[in-house]
Design a protein around this nucleic acid. Structure first.
Lengths: 226, 226
DNA sequence: ACAGTTGTGAACATTTTGTTACAATCGAAA
DNA sequence: TTTCGATTGTAACAAAATGTTCACAACTGT
């Protein structure tokens, strides 16, 4: 069963989209305002969230941002009457995965819904605790341990460690780290990333018999057991 | 480095999109017809393929379908002057991930490019492994093994080995290698390529009962079992 | 104003990449 | 089959790129 959350207040739109989606064998929950939308989105595991930008209680973009901030990665399709490029850009920046301007053809809408769900099916479900070897990283309490021993990480260090954990056994380039942790494109001239990797090594690897963080010269870093 | 393949024959469009993408730190390869597009797409690992629907030699949709048929899951963004809903539907059905009608605003184009790449970064957790005989090359962890035995390659060596694997059983000329691995046209007066092939042989072939890298005198090299 | 965190720059170490010189090999012509 | 020029292979080396570490400056929230 594929569950979709539709956040929209205009009854006519709700009616036609819900019906159309259900005819295509999707299960549709409807929220009529931002607050309700957020509650549903955080409490239920949806495969897709479809949200109008203009909804009562909260702007659809705000909703989108706040869901992303909470770590919810469900694909989001934004709907709106606004159709200038700038509007769309804001949508994408807020973390939306696609953007459709009203009025639209239902068939196109359905195609985009399908495409988004197809893609997200390939992604994995979120865990609360990330593990690698004897290293554990609890995302909710932000507690990190190695062999049961507690390790104190700063916010940035935690972010970086989390990124490593999410990409274990995979070489991560500095460009990738710069983009995902520091949200910059060009990583500049400083050696910030090296410095932070160094911090992590001191806290996570130093004193332990096996090292987890390895340098792949000219490629990046990788989390791997020796 | 994020590599994008742009398949488009109209010089003006190519020029502006390529430049715009490069300004945003993407590496762009251009194919001017369907055949070239397909070759590049199958030989190189791109993060995204952008294709016009109307291109010489092959319909963009056909190309899309045939790439999917070969198991290539790279996100595809279709561009076109046709903008009826039915056209878009056909695009999605062919396996495209997004669809943009010309004329479009570059900013929106860029936003969609980013969204597709971001999404696929999360999706491609599954290991991608190139194999030839008992040689295996893991593209994500950058681990290379022969008969299960680990081989350490430097970044350039890995690139070259990857290129061999992607063109197995085909003779690869030095000009081709120079262009694809060193991104130069004339390969200069040095014998850099011979040197690197030599490095690879030492690490990959030496000590193993059968050699995989063979010289085709006057033509180039080929990956082949004896 | 302070302690902890985050970011910068510079010196230094390491590894890779590219160059060169020369040896070995190939294949065509004598 | 032998010879010879062109091509390819190898090793040593130089140059460049990349990575590590340290000291310290800037920022942040209390």
């Amino acid at each position: 069963m594929i569950k979709i959350l539709l956040i929209e207040d205009e009854p006519k739109t709700v009616q036609s989209l819900k019906q159309g989606l259900e005819e295509n064998h999707y299960t549709v929950d409807v929220a009529y305002d931002g607050l309700m939308g957020k509650q549903l989105a955080t409490r239920t595991a949806y495969q897709l969230i479809i949200s109008d930008i203009i909804i009562p209680g909260m702007n659809g973009l705000e909703l989108c941002k706040s869901l992303r901030a909470e770590g919810i990665q469900t694909p989001i399709l934004m709907l709106t009457a606004l159709s200038t490029t700038d509007d769309k850009l804001v949508g994408f920046e807020a973390g939306a995965d696609d953007y459709l301007a009203k009025p639209f053809d239902f068939k196109e809408f359905l195609a985009r819904v399908k495409a988004l769900i197809k893609r997200s099916n390939q992604t994995l479900i979120e865990a609360q605790v990330l593990k690698f070897a004897d290293l554990e990283l609890d995302l909710t309490s932000k507690i990190v341990t190695r062999s049961g021993q507690k390790i104190n990480l700063t916010a940035k260090e935690f972010q970086l460690m989390e990124y490593f954990l999410r990409n274990q056994e995979k070489v991560i380039s500095k460009a990738e780290i710069a983009e995902n942790i520091w949200e910059v494109e060009d990583e500049g001239s400083s050696n910030l990333i090296e410095v932070y990797v160094n911090y992590l090594r001191k806290k996570v690897d130093k004193g332990f018999p096996s090292k987890l963080i390895h340098t792949q010269f000219g490629m990046g870093y990788i989390l791997r057991q020796e």
